[in-house]
Nucleic acid binder design. Structure first.
Length: 288
DNA sequence: TAGACGTGGAA
DNA sequence: TTTCCAAGTCT
């Protein structure tokens, strides 16, 4: 048993946030919806949307029965709206292939649209108490610091990194599942990327990075996301017009949302290609 | 495997 | 004001 286990498990027991997708009352579907929404989106912005989704669509079948456009609209401003499409597609697959119940195995989950390694492990672990290596950015950062002694993990998950995560995973399913969420929570609340609160950390005394004097990140430059003027910004503007409209909108409304014509046309075409937008009629567009 | 893919809050 | 980035996935 790793020396990290007990302090982190005890810390989690005392400091864990109460979130609607946690605890015994949360359904696997609630967990699944939260995991989709939390992919690259902060908890605070997910909270109200998740509540609305679970109220409106308490089961996968409820969502699957809706047009995909309703999922896109209800996604609101969470960002990366293709996640709404994939969640809808996953719900449809669950109805057709799993009798409407969120599957419990990693392999079955991984086969669903929008579910990669992290999300499959997270749902299996958090919703069903299975033992899995749950390797998200928080866990990677905590292990990079406490064990490897570096400020931040590499860009991509390495084999060695996964081996370390496997080695520190508790043996039994229940403890492994709690461990997974506990390490994530520690990374989210204490061992944060920018200003870690080592004074509040239960394993500060065991941390290799702290012992080394908290050396600054010394790896390849991390890519900076440009934003202004990008296709992503343009697509976001166009989709927002449709999302905020009850029905189809005329082309002129989209023209007003983005002045650069070539880019606007290209982005509208890509939104249609992605099935986030449909050509509703002569010069009118709508959510699918 | 590097790049595309939204959004808004914090420093 | 600008930069960074938050529970990733897909191609």
């Amino acid at each position: 048993m790793s020396d990290l286990h007990q302090p982190i498990l005890e810390w989690y027991d005392e400091h864990a946030r109460e979130l609607p997708w946690r605890g015994p009352q949360a359904s696997p579907w609630s967990v699944m919806v939260s995991e989709f929404m939390l992919q690259q989106t902060p908890v605070g912005r997910v909270l109200p949307v998740h509540e609305e989704w679970l109220r409106r669509w308490p089961t996968p079948a409820d969502l699957a029965a809706e047009p995909t456009g309703e999922a896109v609209r209800a996604w609101g401003r969470l960002g990366y709206p293709r996640r709404a499409l994939r969640l809808h597609a996953a719900a449809t697959a669950i109805v057709e292939q799993h009798d409407g119940a969120v599957p419990s195995s990693y392999d079955e989950l991984k086969a669903l649209p929008g579910i990669g390694d992290y999300t499959a492990a997270a749902i299996a672990s958090f919703a069903y108490g299975r033992r899995h290596v749950v390797l998200d950015t928080n866990v990677r950062r905590v292990l990079a610091r406490t064990i490897q002694g570096v400020e931040l993990p590499s860009t991509a998950v390495t084999k060695a990194e996964r081996e370390v995560a496997t080695e520190v995973l508790p043996e039994d399913d229940a403890t492994a599942a709690t461990w997974a969420v506990a390490v994530m929570e520690l990374g989210a609340l204490v061992c944060t990327a920018a200003n870690p609160r080592c004074g509040a950390c239960p394993v500060a005394g065991l941390c290799a990075w702290r012992a080394a004097g908290r050396p600054a990140y010394d790896g390849p430059p991390r890519k900076v996301q440009t934003w202004a003027g990008t296709d992503r910004q343009c697509r976001g503007r166009l989709l927002a017009v449709l999302r905020d409209s009850d029905g189809p909108v005329h082309r002129s409304a989209l023209d007003a949302a983005w002045s650069e014509e070539g880019q606007r046309i290209r982005c509208l075409a890509s939104l249609i290609e992605d099935a986030l937008v449909v050509h509703a009629g002569a010069d009118t567009y709508a959510l699918p």
